[in-house]
Amino acid sequence: MAGSKTRFPLAEFKVGVDNVIFSVDTAQNRLLVLLVMRDAEPYRDYWCLPGTLVRQGESPEDAAYRILAEKIRVKNLYLEQLYTFGEVEDSRDPRQDPGDPGKEHRLQWARYLSISYFALVRFSEAELIANGVSGIAWYSLQQVPQLAFSQNRILEYGHRRLCNKLEYSPVAFDVLPELFTLNDLYQFYATVLGENFSDYSNFRTRLLKLGFLNDTGEKVSRGAGRPASLYKFDAAAFSLHKDKPMVFI
């Protein structure tokens, strides 16, 4: 019939959030990600990213902060939306609302729209909370196992985003101590980006020329070397560079 339109049923989604929570262990120069172990099917005894289904009346961002608060206590936290994953071939997810008493008799495989977030937290202040899960642990990025729900690709995407953020944003200063040495800052970048991203001498020279690090005049002694100067991040001075690529990377 001329002018007729083919009608397709609208997709039905369960909406959830999955958090990629990074931290940097500066003492051992390790980039870490927080994982929790599932204690129910599917994927029982598999590690996965901390995640949850979005509740009625709750925004995805609120859900992301809620699951963070259930897994970790930390004062300094950087969180931003990462990506939305929902391809048909790998977005089926049998998880239902745990408060739904008839969940076994309802749709067993729901399309699952995952809105992922990534966070960066200060390792020395992070306190893990194990309530309601059989395991929770920091994993070195190089030792992450196969994750439930094909979440390894979410983790890989989060790592790429973190590396990119370090190139143009002051995200590192959200989790570093207020006062730090240039070597502390260099080790942070080297741990996330790899030791070949820059040599220390060039890093130091280029960074100081940008003018957003203030020498406090204080020094700290570590080991047998001479005392190192302590610096402080100047957010106002950095704002002049916020729309420019960071040349020291």
Rank of each mutant, 00 (worst) to 15 (best):
F188K: 09
V88N: 11
K219Y: 02
K103C: 07
G158N: 03
V36N: 06
L10T: 10
D199L: 03
L53C: 02
P98H: 12
A126T: 09
Y189R: 05
I115F: 06
K5S: 13
A130G: 05
E12P: 01
F173N: 03
T26F: 09
N214S: 13
K103S: 14
G57T: 01
Y231S: 01
L82R: 03
G217T: 02
R92L: 08
T216N: 01
Q143G: 10
C48K: 14
L35I: 04
V17P: 00
D100E: 02
P245T: 03
Y112A: 13
V33H: 00
G132A: 04
A126C: 11
L179S: 12
Q56K: 13
I67D: 03
R95S: 09
L79A: 10
N202D: 07
R206A: 10
L182C: 00
L68N: 10
E87C: 08
L185S: 05
L185P: 00
A11D: 15
N131T: 15
E195A: 13
I129K: 12
L79M: 15
L128E: 09
L77K: 14
Q28N: 15
F13E: 06
A11V: 05
E178H: 12
Q56S: 13
D90F: 13
D234A: 03
E41V: 14
A40S: 09
L141A: 13
F203A: 02
S229F: 12
R55W: 13
F238Y: 13
S140V: 02
